[in-house]
């Protein structure tokens, strides 16, 4: 019996059978059955589903009146492990709380840990769902409150084609 077992490659055959099973199922049933059997997606054409808690790029929020929610408590600047946030505090006419005259975010060093969002007591910043963050220039990673392509309130130009751009990033409940 053991000689027969040694001669006949049954162990290899059982592996081949498993491979054949999956090959056959995918070959015959792909695109025909309604049941989703694929693991991979055709990415740029098919949007990827992202979990609600996904940690993407840092983004500042405005309230219903279009006013910046940030009140410069510097909690995010202090907790940031890689010191990517710099805030300058200022005053603005007709606003009781302090107003950020400068809110700089250096994305090239950001590690997307979401400690800043967690420390914020005013819900004035979020990590949005933008994940296509590659850029052609290093300057594109330096994001601030002003500038043509460097806006903390919008998705950056490199990420405009990601699925997050289909939602309105200016709305306050945008997460």
């Amino acid at each position: 019996m053991s000689i027969l077992k040694k001669l006949l490659p049954l162990d290899i055959a059982s592996g081949m059978k498993l491979t054949g099973k999956y090959f056959g199922r995918n070959f015959l049933q792909a695109n025909r059955s309604k049941k989703h059997i694929h693991i991979t997606v055709e990415y740029p054409e098919t949007p990827i589903s992202i979990a609600p808690r996904f940690r993407g790029r840092l983004q500042m929020l405005r309230d219903e009146q279009g006013e910046i929610k940030c009140v410069c408590c510097l909690a995010c600047e202090k907790i940031c492990p890689t010191q990517v946030i710099t805030i300058s505090k200022g005053k603005k006419e007709g606003r009781k709380t302090p107003f950020p005259t400068r809110y700089d975010f250096e994305m090239e060093r950001c590690i997307f840990c979401e400690f800043c969002v967690e420390s914020c007591g005013f819900d004035s910043i979020i990590l949005n769902h933008q994940f296509e963050l590659a850029a052609y220039n290093r300057e594109d990673f330096s994001i601030g409150m002003e500038g043509q392509f460097q806006d903390m309130f919008r998705v950056s130009p490199v990420g405009q084609h990601s699925i997050s751009s289909t939602k309105n990033p200016d709305s306050p409940d945008y997460t």
């Binding site: 979990a51 609600p52 808690r53 996904f54 940690r55 997307f112 979401e114 400690f115």
Partner: peptide, 24 residues
């Protein structure tokens, strides 16, 4: 992992004293 804490590899999953949020 992604639906629990928002990241797949560098999770930063827990906090000192418990969890940041309950499970989604």
């Amino acid at each position: 992992f992604e639906s629990f804490c928002g990241a797949r590899l560098t999770t930063t999953a827990f906090r000192i004293g418990g969890l940041r949020e309950d499970i989604p």
